[in-house]
């Protein structure tokens, strides 16, 4: 495969705005930073007490909550930093971090 063929799904130089300008505001949402993740948080709904500490501490807003209850993770943006698992009270222990390569078999929980 040539380097040309490999990158053909992206626009060519004639179709890009010049100067590296990005013309669309708020387009960062299109960049799924979750694909950087090495460690995946896995949520145990049975053990969760909905204290929302993980939701509060997540630096990426990737813990999803609705009506004061945790409903899971947004894996599109979760970078796997593990702060949620660290902040989850030890007695509760509702979030486990597992390696992405080992987790590939399992479906994502949200």
């Amino acid at each position: 495969m040539t380097s040309k063929a490999k990158s053909k799904e992206r626009p060519g130089w004639k179709d890009l705005p010049s100067g590296g300008f990005i013309l669309e505001p708020g387009n960062a949402t299109k960049y799924l930073t979750g694909d950087w993740r090495l460690m995946r948080p896995v949520w145990d709904a049975e053990r969760c007490i909905d204290c929302l500490l993980c939701w509060l501490f997540c630096p990426d807003g990737a813990v999803l909550a609705e009506g004061g209850k945790i409903i899971g993770f947004d894996y599109d943006y979760c970078k796997g930093c593990g702060i949620c698992a660290k902040e989850c009270p030890p007695k509760v222990d509702a979030i486990k971090m597992i390696r992405e390569d080992e987790a590939l078999e399992e479906p994502l929980s949200a």
Binding site: S7, R10, L16, G19, G20, F21, I22, L23, P25
Partner: peptide, 11 residues
């Protein structure tokens, strides 16, 4: 618009 964004090996 954004000017001066990171522009790596894909662009």
């Amino acid at each position: 618009i954004t000017i001066g964004a990171l522009d790596l090996n894909d662009y």
